Simulated scan of single mutants.
Amino acid sequence: MGEKRSTISISRYANLIAAAKAAGLPVVRSEIDADGRIVLVHAEPSDATRMAGSNSFDRILR
């Protein structure tokens, strides 16, 4: 019996990991189900990442 063809390509998977990292979500673990569903488990973003979308006035009011 042959193996089932993959439902996701390596390049698609690499793009998803890169997109998560670009969004400031460091990927800790990933899971791919047999049906192609992908789950990316990420750590908490750092303070610098959370503050990236704010301006200096937001920091003063904190």
Rank of each mutant, 00 (worst) to 15 (best):
I8W: 14
I32L: 11
E44T: 13
S9I: 05
L25A: 03
G36L: 08
N15L: 11
D35H: 08
G53W: 01
V28D: 08
I8C: 13
Y13I: 04
A14L: 13
T7M: 08
A19W: 01
T7W: 11
K21F: 10
P45E: 10
S56K: 12
A48G: 06
I17G: 00
R5A: 10
A48Y: 10
A14V: 14
P26I: 07
G36E: 06
R62W: 08
M51C: 03
A34C: 08
G24V: 04
S9R: 13
A52N: 05
K4H: 15
V39F: 02
D47S: 14
L40Q: 03
N15P: 02
S54L: 13
I32Y: 06
R5K: 08
R37C: 05
V28W: 08
E31F: 02
S6T: 10
R59K: 10
N15S: 15
A34N: 04
A52W: 03
A48V: 09
N55V: 14
G2K: 07
A43M: 03
K21G: 11
G2E: 09
D35L: 02
D58W: 09
I32G: 04
D33R: 08
R5C: 07
T7Q: 04
K21M: 12
A34H: 01
A43R: 06
D33P: 11
A14P: 10
K21E: 06
V41A: 12
R50Y: 13
D33E: 15
S56H: 11
L40W: 00
G24C: 00
R5Y: 01
P26N: 06
E31I: 02
E31K: 01
N15T: 02
A18F: 14
R59F: 08
S9D: 04
L61V: 14
G53F: 07
S11D: 10
S6M: 04
T7I: 12
V27C: 03
D58K: 06
H42F: 03
I60P: 05
K21D: 11
L25T: 03
A52S: 07
K4L: 14
S6N: 14
T49R: 00
R59D: 12
G36M: 05
R5L: 00
S30P: 09
D33A: 11
S6E: 11
R12K: 15
S30W: 05
L40E: 01
R37S: 10
R5W: 07
R12I: 11
S11N: 04
S30Q: 12
I10P: 12
D47N: 12
A19E: 01
A34L: 13
A43L: 05
H42N: 01
A19T: 06
E3H: 14
V41C: 11
G36T: 06
K4Q: 15
L61T: 12
P26V: 09
I38F: 03
G24W: 00
